[in-house]
Nucleic acid binder design. Structure first.
Length: 231
DNA sequence: TCATTAAGTATGC
DNA sequence: GCATACTTAATGA
Protein backbone atom coordinates (compact mmCIF):
# COMPACT_ATOMS: atom_id res chain seq x y z
CA UNK A 1 0.00 0.00 0.00
CA UNK A 2 2.83 2.37 -0.63
CA UNK A 3 1.09 4.04 -3.51
CA UNK A 4 -1.28 5.98 -1.29
CA UNK A 5 -0.46 9.61 -1.48
CA UNK A 6 0.33 11.49 1.72
CA UNK A 7 -1.79 14.37 0.46
CA UNK A 8 -4.82 12.12 1.08
CA UNK A 9 -4.38 12.55 4.80
CA UNK A 10 -2.69 15.85 5.38
CA UNK A 11 -5.91 17.89 5.34
CA UNK A 12 -7.92 15.51 7.50
CA UNK A 13 -8.31 16.61 11.12
CA UNK A 14 -6.73 13.56 12.81
CA UNK A 15 -3.57 14.07 10.74
CA UNK A 16 -3.49 17.78 10.13
CA UNK A 17 -0.82 18.51 12.73
CA UNK A 18 1.59 15.86 11.55
CA UNK A 19 4.73 16.17 9.47
CA UNK A 20 5.00 14.63 6.07
CA UNK A 21 7.21 11.84 7.33
CA UNK A 22 4.82 11.02 10.17
CA UNK A 23 2.00 10.75 7.67
CA UNK A 24 4.20 8.53 5.54
CA UNK A 25 4.76 6.21 8.51
CA UNK A 26 1.04 6.04 9.21
CA UNK A 27 0.24 5.31 5.60
CA UNK A 28 2.89 2.61 5.38
CA UNK A 29 1.09 0.72 8.11
CA UNK A 30 -2.33 1.07 6.50
CA UNK A 31 -4.16 -1.13 4.06
CA UNK A 32 -6.67 0.36 1.64
CA UNK A 33 -9.89 -1.56 1.18
CA UNK A 34 -12.83 -1.12 -1.16
CA UNK A 35 -16.36 -2.07 -0.21
CA UNK A 36 -19.35 -2.63 -2.46
CA UNK A 37 -22.68 -1.21 -1.34
CA UNK A 38 -24.31 -3.27 1.43
CA UNK A 39 -21.03 -4.90 2.46
CA UNK A 40 -20.72 -5.40 6.19
CA UNK A 41 -17.34 -3.94 7.21
CA UNK A 42 -17.49 -5.12 10.80
CA UNK A 43 -20.13 -6.81 12.94
CA UNK A 44 -21.73 -5.69 16.16
CA UNK A 45 -20.42 -7.77 19.05
CA UNK A 46 -17.36 -9.05 17.22
CA UNK A 47 -13.84 -8.78 18.57
CA UNK A 48 -12.22 -5.46 17.74
CA UNK A 49 -9.22 -6.07 15.53
CA UNK A 50 -9.06 -2.98 13.30
CA UNK A 51 -9.85 0.67 13.10
CA UNK A 52 -10.59 2.62 9.95
CA UNK A 53 -10.64 5.92 8.13
CA UNK A 54 -13.25 6.44 5.44
CA UNK A 55 -11.65 8.04 2.39
CA UNK A 56 -14.62 7.89 0.05
CA UNK A 57 -18.24 6.74 0.15
CA UNK A 58 -20.78 6.56 2.97
CA UNK A 59 -21.50 4.07 5.73
CA UNK A 60 -24.44 3.23 7.92
CA UNK A 61 -23.71 2.29 11.51
CA UNK A 62 -26.41 -0.15 12.53
CA UNK A 63 -27.59 -2.03 15.57
CA UNK A 64 -29.89 -5.02 15.35
CA UNK A 65 -32.53 -5.71 17.98
CA UNK A 66 -33.16 -9.23 19.28
CA UNK A 67 -36.26 -9.27 17.05
CA UNK A 68 -34.07 -8.62 14.03
CA UNK A 69 -35.08 -4.99 13.55
CA UNK A 70 -32.35 -2.68 12.33
CA UNK A 71 -31.71 0.71 13.87
CA UNK A 72 -29.47 3.17 12.04
CA UNK A 73 -27.36 4.77 14.75
CA UNK A 74 -25.50 7.23 12.53
CA UNK A 75 -23.85 7.68 9.16
CA UNK A 76 -20.13 8.07 8.44
CA UNK A 77 -18.92 10.54 5.80
CA UNK A 78 -15.56 10.71 4.02
CA UNK A 79 -12.64 11.86 6.19
CA UNK A 80 -14.02 10.31 9.37
CA UNK A 81 -12.44 7.68 11.58
CA UNK A 82 -14.72 4.76 12.39
CA UNK A 83 -14.52 1.48 14.23
CA UNK A 84 -12.57 3.36 16.89
CA UNK A 85 -13.80 1.11 19.69
CA UNK A 86 -10.27 1.12 21.18
CA UNK A 87 -10.81 4.79 22.09
CA UNK A 88 -13.77 3.62 24.18
CA UNK A 89 -11.78 0.86 25.90
CA UNK A 90 -13.99 -1.69 24.22
CA UNK A 91 -12.93 -5.02 22.85
CA UNK A 92 -16.08 -5.65 20.82
CA UNK A 93 -17.70 -3.37 18.25
CA UNK A 94 -20.85 -1.73 19.66
CA UNK A 95 -22.54 -1.68 16.24
CA UNK A 96 -22.08 -2.92 12.70
CA UNK A 97 -20.80 -0.78 9.84
CA UNK A 98 -22.32 -1.26 6.39
CA UNK A 99 -21.29 0.45 3.16
CA UNK A 100 -24.16 2.56 1.84
CA UNK A 101 -22.37 3.27 -1.43
CA UNK A 102 -19.12 2.16 -3.04
CA UNK A 103 -16.62 3.02 -0.35
CA UNK A 104 -12.89 3.19 0.21
CA UNK A 105 -11.25 3.03 3.63
CA UNK A 106 -7.82 2.84 5.19
CA UNK A 107 -7.49 0.05 7.73
CA UNK A 108 -5.07 -0.39 10.62
CA UNK A 109 -4.69 -3.19 13.17
CA UNK A 110 -5.98 -2.19 16.61
CA UNK A 111 -2.59 -2.64 18.24
CA UNK A 112 -1.49 0.55 16.46
CA UNK A 113 -4.14 2.65 18.22
CA UNK A 114 -1.99 3.15 21.34
CA UNK A 115 0.99 4.01 19.23
CA UNK A 116 -0.95 6.56 17.17
CA UNK A 117 -2.50 8.31 20.14
CA UNK A 118 0.82 8.42 21.97
CA UNK A 119 3.15 9.31 19.15
CA UNK A 120 1.17 11.70 17.02
CA UNK A 121 0.20 15.12 18.28
CA UNK A 122 -3.44 15.93 17.80
CA UNK A 123 -4.49 12.43 16.84
CA UNK A 124 -6.05 11.62 20.21
CA UNK A 125 -7.70 15.02 20.58
CA UNK A 126 -9.19 14.80 17.12
CA UNK A 127 -10.48 11.31 17.82
CA UNK A 128 -12.22 12.59 20.92
CA UNK A 129 -13.70 15.47 18.94
CA UNK A 130 -15.15 12.93 16.52
CA UNK A 131 -16.58 10.87 19.37
CA UNK A 132 -17.92 13.96 21.05
CA UNK A 133 -19.66 15.16 17.89
CA UNK A 134 -21.30 11.74 17.50
CA UNK A 135 -22.37 11.68 21.12
CA UNK A 136 -23.90 15.12 20.69
CA UNK A 137 -25.84 14.04 17.63
CA UNK A 138 -27.07 10.92 19.37
CA UNK A 139 -28.30 12.98 22.34
CA UNK A 140 -30.16 15.26 19.96
CA UNK A 141 -31.77 12.28 18.30
CA UNK A 142 -32.76 10.65 21.57
CA UNK A 143 -34.42 13.88 22.59
CA UNK A 144 -36.23 14.02 19.26
CA UNK A 145 -37.37 10.42 19.58
CA UNK A 146 -38.75 11.11 23.03
CA UNK A 147 -40.43 14.44 22.36
CA UNK A 148 -41.05 15.05 18.66
CA UNK A 149 -43.80 13.74 16.40
CA UNK A 150 -42.90 11.41 13.55
CA UNK A 151 -43.08 14.06 10.81
CA UNK A 152 -40.76 16.32 12.81
CA UNK A 153 -38.24 13.52 13.29
CA UNK A 154 -38.24 12.61 9.62
CA UNK A 155 -37.81 16.27 8.66
CA UNK A 156 -34.89 16.61 11.08
CA UNK A 157 -33.28 13.40 9.80
CA UNK A 158 -33.46 14.57 6.19
CA UNK A 159 -31.96 17.92 7.14
CA UNK A 160 -29.07 16.26 8.93
CA UNK A 161 -28.43 13.94 6.00
CA UNK A 162 -28.47 16.86 3.56
CA UNK A 163 -26.08 18.77 5.76
CA UNK A 164 -23.66 15.92 6.48
CA UNK A 165 -23.70 14.13 3.17
CA UNK A 166 -25.48 16.40 0.75
CA UNK A 167 -24.33 17.30 -2.73
CA UNK A 168 -25.56 20.46 -4.41
CA UNK A 169 -27.61 19.66 -7.49
CA UNK A 170 -29.82 21.81 -9.67
CA UNK A 171 -32.56 23.04 -7.39
CA UNK A 172 -31.49 21.52 -4.11
CA UNK A 173 -29.22 19.30 -2.08
CA UNK A 174 -29.20 15.60 -2.84
CA UNK A 175 -28.37 13.01 -0.21
CA UNK A 176 -25.25 11.59 -1.79
CA UNK A 177 -25.87 7.88 -1.34
CA UNK A 178 -28.72 5.46 -2.02
CA UNK A 179 -31.28 5.61 0.76
CA UNK A 180 -34.64 3.85 0.94
CA UNK A 181 -37.86 4.70 2.80
CA UNK A 182 -37.02 1.68 4.93
CA UNK A 183 -33.61 3.19 5.79
CA UNK A 184 -35.18 6.51 6.77
CA UNK A 185 -37.70 4.70 8.94
CA UNK A 186 -34.81 2.89 10.66
CA UNK A 187 -33.28 6.27 11.51
CA UNK A 188 -36.47 7.77 12.87
CA UNK A 189 -38.30 4.99 14.66
CA UNK A 190 -41.24 4.76 12.31
CA UNK A 191 -42.36 2.59 9.39
CA UNK A 192 -41.50 2.77 5.71
CA UNK A 193 -45.17 3.47 5.00
CA UNK A 194 -45.22 6.59 7.10
CA UNK A 195 -41.97 7.79 5.51
CA UNK A 196 -43.42 7.12 2.07
CA UNK A 197 -46.56 9.12 2.88
CA UNK A 198 -44.52 12.00 4.28
CA UNK A 199 -42.20 12.11 1.28
CA UNK A 200 -45.17 12.02 -1.11
CA UNK A 201 -46.84 14.88 0.73
CA UNK A 202 -43.63 16.91 0.86
CA UNK A 203 -43.02 16.27 -2.81
CA UNK A 204 -46.44 17.76 -3.61
CA UNK A 205 -45.53 20.73 -1.44
CA UNK A 206 -42.21 21.12 -3.35
CA UNK A 207 -40.11 20.61 -0.23
CA UNK A 208 -38.33 17.47 -1.44
CA UNK A 209 -37.99 15.47 -4.63
CA UNK A 210 -37.40 11.78 -4.55
CA UNK A 211 -37.03 8.78 -6.78
CA UNK A 212 -36.09 5.25 -5.91
CA UNK A 213 -33.22 5.38 -3.43
CA UNK A 214 -32.55 9.08 -4.04
CA UNK A 215 -33.78 12.09 -2.10
CA UNK A 216 -33.24 15.77 -2.91
CA UNK A 217 -34.10 18.45 -0.38
CA UNK A 218 -35.39 21.39 -2.40
CA UNK A 219 -36.66 23.63 0.38
CA UNK A 220 -34.52 23.24 3.51
CA UNK A 221 -36.12 26.27 5.19
CA UNK A 222 -39.55 24.69 5.15
CA UNK A 223 -38.15 21.36 6.26
CA UNK A 224 -36.54 23.21 9.14
CA UNK A 225 -39.90 24.64 10.11
CA UNK A 226 -41.49 21.18 9.84
CA UNK A 227 -38.79 19.74 12.08
CA UNK A 228 -40.03 22.00 14.86
CA UNK A 229 -36.49 22.95 15.88
CA UNK A 230 -35.82 26.44 14.54
CA UNK A 231 -32.20 27.40 14.90
C1' DT B 1 -51.62 10.43 15.61
C1' DC B 2 -49.61 6.61 13.74
C1' DA B 3 -48.83 1.35 12.95
C1' DT B 4 -50.57 -2.41 10.56
C1' DT B 5 -52.52 -4.91 6.87
C1' DA B 6 -53.20 -5.46 2.44
C1' DA B 7 -53.16 -4.69 -2.26
C1' DG B 8 -51.62 -2.46 -5.67
C1' DT B 9 -47.90 0.12 -9.19
C1' DA B 10 -43.12 1.35 -10.64
C1' DT B 11 -38.37 0.43 -11.47
C1' DG B 12 -34.14 -1.70 -12.58
C1' DC B 13 -31.09 -5.72 -13.35
C1' DG C 1 -39.82 -11.33 -15.67
C1' DC C 2 -38.65 -11.21 -11.25
C1' DA C 3 -37.27 -9.02 -6.91
C1' DT C 4 -37.27 -4.92 -4.67
C1' DA C 5 -38.81 -0.22 -3.97
C1' DC C 6 -42.49 2.50 -3.42
C1' DT C 7 -47.64 4.17 -3.05
C1' DT C 8 -52.08 4.29 -1.29
C1' DA C 9 -56.34 3.13 1.25
C1' DA C 10 -58.66 1.09 4.98
C1' DT C 11 -58.88 0.01 9.77
C1' DG C 12 -58.29 0.44 14.44
C1' DA C 13 -55.26 1.08 18.74
Amino acid sequence: MTQLDASLLKDLPPFSQLTRSQIREILDQATAKRYEPETVIFHEGFEVDRFYLLLDGYLRVVRTTPEGEQIIVLHISPGQLFGIAPALQRDTYPASAIAASDSLALVWPTRLWQEFTQSYPGFATESYKTLSARLGEMQTRITELATQAVDQRVAAALLRLAEQSGRAVGGGVEIDFPITRQNISEMTGTTLHTVSRLLSAWEKAAIVKSTRKRVVVTDPQRLQVLSGTPR
